[in-house]
Nucleic acid binder design. Structure first.
Lengths: 236, 236
DNA sequence: CGCGTAAAGTCTACAGTGTAGAGAGTTGTT
DNA sequence: AACAACTCTCTACACTGTAGACTTTACGCG
């Protein structure tokens, strides 16, 4: 394994011109592997075999670097704004985003947190693209723009909420087979948390996929009632 | 204003026995005023007129301190698990939590993020209490425990999602009265983000309260269909 | 009162952080 | 070959969390 200078991935392969993409990919790898706190300038520099300061050519800040990571992850999400079946498309996107979150659990905190510290218009374009595309999808399906925004909000709100929920209940110690123990519920005072403890087994059988899908059904049917659906324009 | 030793609040009033509550309150104040990053051990120590190291008597870590802050905020939330009208109760809780989030916007990242790094059973009890109490509410209303859990998930997921949404769209510069400018949308390339830019005025008129309430209506009516409601036990 | 014990608070020190500023090295164009 | 522009490195500084030993304070008991 003495690759001289070509392949950029790997711990410290020396000498290969950096680029924003290379830097961000390495950053993402690091976050995936060891969490957000492990992403320090020095560490990332070491991972790339470069001086930490060189990173500042590709990201103004550590914060900007974190933004870059979220951007990178959101780029994995494909949206087809021209799909005529908007409900099916929303369902698919939701499931894709869920899988994305499960694939990059350490990035989720960034995904939900970074936008809170950056006004909408100043966010990295990559993170705004899904919003724009879903608006396009809904407007294309016949929703009035303002209604499309409402649908988007309900949809994305619910979706992010679900993802947070699911990741919070992540299995702790899969080797342990008593649900109460596996989830650490034994620590809870039984007097104060009777129902939570009793639900141990149910909590352990969490199936995020069906839970998400049921939630979407609720949401979409509710939306149909509330907004009385899109008003398609007649063909010319 | 030369209060000698009694009132514990204020910048550096010297000499007044610390306590977990005093420490956490000061921490919350600091986070509210200047954001999470401003909450360093040294800074908090200074704020309390004590050596930074003294804080470690009341929180094992900086992380534990952050957990304490979230706990403190969630304690402001009142839940009445015995209310027979569970829908009304869920609505009220939702609006209360929303207001809480608006009152402590800098704490919201902690609220949604901290649980992701701590397995359910090991979280501070204060943060689990709402969960337990809402389960009690729903079970008391006649839901089977497992169904109560589903309702809780859909509800809390939606609720957190809404809060994230609303805080993300927070007004940036209220003095500016062109929505496009105020939200920073002018930076977006018009070709790539036409709908988002066009929605500037609508975005500016965001009313989180009605948005939340409409969402709750959708959710609750959807839940009624999906689960066919609670099954109240007959009175003895 | 005074003593003794435990808790509360402090001091010092260390390894690690982000990043400003100036310099060295490399690359591509004329 | 010479210039300019870009990329990368070095050094330095102020600041972070926190381990460990120490000093001060508070309080119960004879």
């Amino acid at each position: 394994m003495a690759s001289p200078k070509n392949i950029p991935s790997g711990p410290a392969p020396r000498k290969a011109r950096l680029s924003r993409d290379v830097v961000l990919s390495a950053a993402l790898e690091l976050v995936d592997a060891e969490g957000v706190d492990a992403l320090t300038m020095r560490r990332l520099g070491q991972e790339l075999g470069r001086d930490p300061m060189s990173l500042y050519r590709y990201a103004a800040n550590r914060a900007a670097l974190l933004d870059g990571v979220t951007e990178m992850v959101l780029n994995e999400l494909a949206i087809f704004p021209d799909d005529p079946d908007w409900q099916a498309q929303l369902r698919r996107i939701a499931h894709d985003l869920r899988l994305l979150a499960l694939r990059h659990p350490n990035v989720v905190p960034l995904l939900v947190t970074r936008p809170l510290s950056t006004p909408l218009g100043l966010r990295p374009l990559g993170t705004l693209r899904p919003l724009e595309q879903i608006l396009a999808l809904l407007i294309g399906a016949g929703f009035a723009p303002a209604d499309a925004l409402h649908v988007y909000r309900a949809y994305y709100g619910f979706l992010y909420g679900h993802i947070l929920n699911e990741l919070q209940e992540y299995i702790v110690d899969p080797d342990e087979n008593e649900a109460i123990l596996r989830l650490g519920l034994h620590r809870l005072p039984a007097k104060e948390f009777p129902r939570l403890r009793a639900l141990g087994p149910v909590l352990a059988e969490y199936d995020g996929e069906v839970e998400l899908d049921q939630g979407l059904s609720i949401l979409l049917s509710g939306l149909a009632i509330q907004l009385s659906g899109p008003h398609p324009k007649p063909l010319p």
